[in-house]
């Protein structure tokens, strides 16, 4: 095994060990999305403009895509917190004194958060299935939904880690998270489709990478395969590239 692999595996293992001691964190990450689903699943709310969304017979099927992506958003943006804790309590410095490549630590965090995000997305799809939502594109579609979720998650995790390294302490970090999460959700197609938004909002929403992921996931659940999926994958790849480049610069500066 190459030394680099050994570093990455060891540090990824640490994230899982930490997670194993506090497995409830995956549940907390899911409470908000599950609430959305349960609320709309049980109340039998039907979407008034159902006709406006092809194939959307009920709101819960419509919502599932948004809920998956909201979970990705939450988990991704929380992804940097543990690095911030490490930095605050000196453990990061302890790691940095070892002869390791700095990128190994960053990659280990991405591996862990991405795996976690994938599992959460799968859990939500499972939950939606219990409410009667069956993805139109079958297992292959589920696989692509996970890929889309993970790609979006990587970008958010990168943002989160960069913020963690730019903030003085975790107080400010949490405040900032609370401040940006809701607007990001409202300024996307998570709750309302683009067509039903006021014009100015739909313009903003189209700048939000979440919108692309949500519409793609929604399409895979509600209608089927569509050529626009390629565009979504490209958009997400560009989003990841931008976030990674930016955060990498901040992270490497913070971990000399």
């Amino acid at each position: 095994m190459s030394p680099y692999m050994q570093e990455v595996i060891a540090m990824t293992r640490r994230w899982f060990q930490r997670f194993k001691r506090e497995p409830m964190s995956i549940i907390f990450g899911l409470t908000q999305p599950v609430l959305w689903l349960a609320l709309f699943g049980n109340s039998g709310v039907t979407f008034r403009n159902a006709g406006a969304i092809p194939g959307a017979s009920n709101y819960i099927a419509f919502m599932t895509g948004g809920v998956v992506v909201m979970t990705v958003l939450n988990s991704g943006l929380a992804g940097g917190i543990e690095m911030l804790f490490d930095k605050e309590n000196g453990f990061l410095e302890r790691l940095m004194a070892a002869p390791i490549k700095r990128s190994a630590l960053i990659i280990s965090r991405f591996l862990f958060v991405t795996a976690l995000t994938g599992v959460q997305a799968l859990m939500i799809l499972g939950m939606a299935f219990l409410f009667g939502v069956v993805p139109a594109t079958g297992w292959l579609g589920v696989g692509l939904i996970l890929v889309i979720g993970m790609m979006l998650g990587i970008g958010f995790t990168a943002i989160s880690m960069a913020l963690a390294f730019s903030m003085k302490g975790h107080g400010g970090f949490f405040a900032l998270l609370g401040f940006i999460t809701l607007p990001l959700i409202f300024m996307s197609s998570a709750l309302v489709p683009l067509q039903s938004m006021p014009g100015w909002l739909s313009v903003i929403a189209q700048l939000n990478p979440m919108t692309y992921a949500i519409d793609a996931v929604r399409g895979l659940i509600l209608s089927g395969w569509h050529i626009s999926l390629v565009k979504v994958l490209i958009v997400l790849a560009v989003f990841d590239a931008i976030c990674l480049t930016w955060s990498n610069r901040i992270l490497l500066r913070g971990m000399r």
Binding site: A10, R14, Q17, F91
Partner: peptide, 23 residues
């Protein structure tokens, strides 16, 4: 280090395994 830089969620042996790999 001067500050207690240990990971509270890990066991002693897990710490050792981590640093064995990092070195």
């Amino acid at each position: 280090p001067q500050e207690r830089a240990v990971d509270r969620a890990l066991t002693g042996r897990e710490h050792m395994a981590l640093f064995a790999d990092l070195y």
